[in-house]
Simulated scan of single mutants.
Amino acid sequence: MSNIYDFSARTLAGEDVSLAGYRGKVLLIVNTASQCGFTPQYEGLEALYRDLQGRGLIVLGFPCNQFGAQEPGDAAEIANFCKLTYDVSFPMFAKIDVNGPAASPLYEWLKNEAPGVLGSKAIKWNFTKFLINRDGQVVGRFAPTTKPEALRADIEALL
């Protein structure tokens, strides 16, 4: 796989979506969880999306239950939580694994393209962020502790 557009993902509503549909956009891909200390980052992610989507930013959320079982809900529960608690309007996808033998092929590619600290590939926790340029290439990986608003300058430089 050479870029993000070679992958597809299933939405929370159960639809398969080709990421090629986001060609030419700047993507911020985040593994999310509803019961995590970083969950309030949904607010910052949504603010970035609302402010910058008109210029070409798309935030893609991928719920994951691999870290402290902090995303135990099913698709309907996740969708309701995101909408009712943070008024999330950016695309949310079905729950996935980001590490291990059942890891999503998308996440395997992301981790290979942008290893973490000291070259580690594993996702360390919820709300790890990957920034993708308009050509479908990974240009940055950001720790869960990096708040969405701290990415604004990097995102605007790609827009």
Rank of each mutant, 00 (worst) to 15 (best):
D6R: 03
D74E: 15
K129T: 08
A75T: 01
Q53D: 08
V17D: 13
N80I: 00
T85A: 13
N65L: 10
G116W: 01
K83A: 15
E149S: 11
Q137G: 02
Y22N: 13
F93P: 01
G37K: 01
N65E: 09
K147S: 04
L28P: 08
A94M: 03
R152E: 08
G61V: 11
V138A: 09
V138I: 12
A9R: 06
L19I: 05
A79E: 09
A20M: 05
R141M: 08
T128I: 04
I29E: 09
V98P: 12
T128E: 15
L19H: 12
Y107C: 02
P144W: 01
V17I: 15
E43P: 11
V138T: 09
D154I: 05
L110F: 07
K111F: 14
W109F: 13
E108I: 14
N133K: 10
P115E: 00
L131E: 01
A69H: 09
K124I: 15
V138Y: 03
R152V: 07
V26D: 00
G136K: 08
V59I: 12
I132A: 07
V26P: 03
V139H: 04
F142V: 04
S34V: 00
T128C: 13
F67C: 07
P91D: 02
G44V: 14
C64K: 05
P63R: 07
G21V: 04
L118E: 10
F93M: 10
P148V: 11
G73Y: 11
Q70E: 13
N31A: 04
W125L: 12
P105K: 09
L52T: 13
G14C: 01
G14N: 06
A102S: 14
V117L: 14
D51C: 05
D6K: 08
G73E: 12
I58C: 07
K111Q: 13
V139N: 01
L118G: 02
A47G: 07
G21Q: 09
A69I: 03
P101F: 11
N65A: 11
T11H: 13
